[in-house]
Design a protein around this nucleic acid. Structure first.
Lengths: 335, 335
DNA sequence: CTGAAAGCGCTTACAG
DNA sequence: CTGAAAGCGCTTACAG
């Protein structure tokens, strides 16, 4: 079966191909009579414009690229799903890619997207990938950074991330309110902007609250080593630590496991508050309290900002999202 | 910045554009010298071919569509991630879409994919979507069904799914071996091919083992209602049930919660074996045993089958995957 | 083994 | 408000 082209439609409708094209694309300045005529023929012949040709000619593609560290990670698949929803609603298709926190993957994904004619990207950057973002800019792309920021200023780059200061403050306030003051942090030493700023704010806010003497950040070297977590928990309990603030989602799960393994109770012996654990926190016993950056909000705000940058030519902004506190049993007040 | 084109590469390398094109596409009959020359220039100028132009001219698009019920579901995001990996390795890009188990979404996703010129789809079907698959076939697409089958025979449709009989047999054997024989099933009443066949095999195999008198399938009406699960567990325990076989991944998590809520122990009071829980089963206390359909294998086999159908013109096959048993603490032998 | 040229199906200035 | 024509960047016969 030969494919129907715009020529066939134009001939059948008795108009020029240019006119037909304008009708498909809803351009202004076409008489109502012609619109109807063309649309009727289009429907009758079951015609769908060849996108490849349109893209090639116009250079405009209603497709965006999304890069997260890992599509299989529940937090990022959550965001991805929301992006998918919004994009389809707006007539956009989405290309997803995972970076595994590696610059080379981000770089090659940007090349792939570029070859595909993509002009807008939503991306969770990894460490030191400023140069790769600049490459995207050179390709003429607009970029919105999700969840993490980068040390760069460019009007073609926007950022949508959590207000980390407010997030950490909310967590500490909540703990103090429920009677915990000897609050330590457990994290690993990936050099992510989010982690760094959360560590800084933890220190700052603990000082502010007059809890400076309890400040302690337990740095995990190898996240895979259960024994390392066990050891940190054991020593912390011994020195009288009352609560752990854990700025990495899955890490809180491991800490829970270690606490239970040591025969200790949550929160009676040690309380826990994590970040962005979602469903996984809710199925734990006890359920885990958390500070949350809404995946839906992240997706919506990022997409909207990207659209404004691509279509309205707005400069990229820096948007801080409000954290939300989800209270579980792991930080219950002990009477 | 003006985009680099094949012309620039050809000029820089001192060859014709046709020759350059042949090099990019690995066509035979180009001298080694020229291959190297062109590749070097290509790398130097950081060139990526414009896909829209290639697609337009050749009519061949290296993009496939993937439809799962929900990208945010950990099992499907796992599969999606593996598909992403394999596809990129093979020079394919992937468009993802979620169906929410709804026919209309599958149907409109197929239309979207069609307008994008996609000729191959990997899809986890929902109930009664045979007609939508047929539409895809009419568009000239090849389809591989993942995880679930459909009541249809068509050479353009392949299926990659778990060997459910073997899976259920493995689960029951494992339970019996560890001393559990009063085995009941808990599931919900979605009309999915997978669930139906798992229920049938549960009955069949229990009979085979001479355990027919213990057969009981507890059907959940509303998965959201915790009380319903609580009640099922309570009654089952009362009547002496020793183990639950749960053919839906997340459901096992709820059952665990109910068991704990009733003050019972796993597996001492009631053992549990689930399906495809992955990470979520591993962070539970106790860890949950499971029967698993490998997401990686599913992704690889589906992709390979689709490629064979699209390129080699092979007919769609029906491939049954081997289940694997992951032993956790929830089915430990009680001494 | 290599090069010059046609053309894929659109969109978009441009002229009327 | 409408039509004829150029050209987006490739791939692919075709001639040499």
């Amino acid at each position: 079966m030969k494919k129907t082209t715009i020529k066939d439609i134009a001939k059948e409708a008795g108009v020029s191909v240019g006119l037909a094209s304008m009708v498909f694309n809803g351009k202004p300045g076409v008489s109502q009579k012609n619109i109807e005529k063309v649309m009727a023929v289009m429907k009758k012949m079951n015609y769908t414009p060849n996108k490849a040709a349109a893209v090639l000619r116009s250079g405009v593609k209603k497709t965006i690229g999304v890069i997260t560290p890992d599509l299989a990670n529940h937090y990022f698949s959550d965001i991805s799903r929301h992006i998918e929803n919004i994009a389809y609603e707006n007539g956009y298709t989405v290309l997803f890619g995972s970076s595994d926190e590696r610059r080379d993957k981000i770089s090659s994904l940007i090349d792939t997207f570029n070859a595909d004619g993509i002009k807008g990207i939503l991306l969770t950057p990894c460490e030191d990938c400023e140069g790769d973002i600049m490459k995207a800019i050179r390709y003429g792309m607009k970029v919105v950074l999700m969840n993490r920021c980068l040390k760069m200023e460019n009007e073609n780059v926007g950022t949508v991330m959590l207000d980390n200061e407010k997030a950490i403050r909310t967590a500490i306030d909540h703990l103090i309110e429920n009677g915990y003051s000897r609050i330590e942090m457990i994290t690993n030493n990936e050099k992510l902007s989010t982690l760094n700023s959360r560590m800084d704010f933890y220190k700052k806010i603990m000082e502010e609250k007059g809890l400076g003497k309890y400040i302690r950040i337990n740095l995990l070297k190898d996240i895979e080593k259960e024994e390392e977590v066990d050891e940190i928990v054991r020593l912390a309990y011994k020195r009288g630590t009352e609560a752990f603030l854990i700025p990495r989602g899955y890490l809180a799960l491991y800490v829970c496991k270690s606490i239970k393994k040591l025969g200790l109770r949550i929160p009676e012996d040690i309380a826990i508050i994590g970040c962005d654990g979602g469903q996984s926190y809710r199925i734990m016993t006890p359920t885990v309290s958390e500070i949350r950056q809404s995946p839906r909000e992240t997706a919506e705000e990022s997409f909207t900002m990207l659209m404004n940058m691509m279509k309205g030519d707005a400069p990229g902004e820096r948007l801080l999202l409000e954290p939300s506190l989800v209270i579980g049993d792991s930080t219950k007040k002990i009477i």
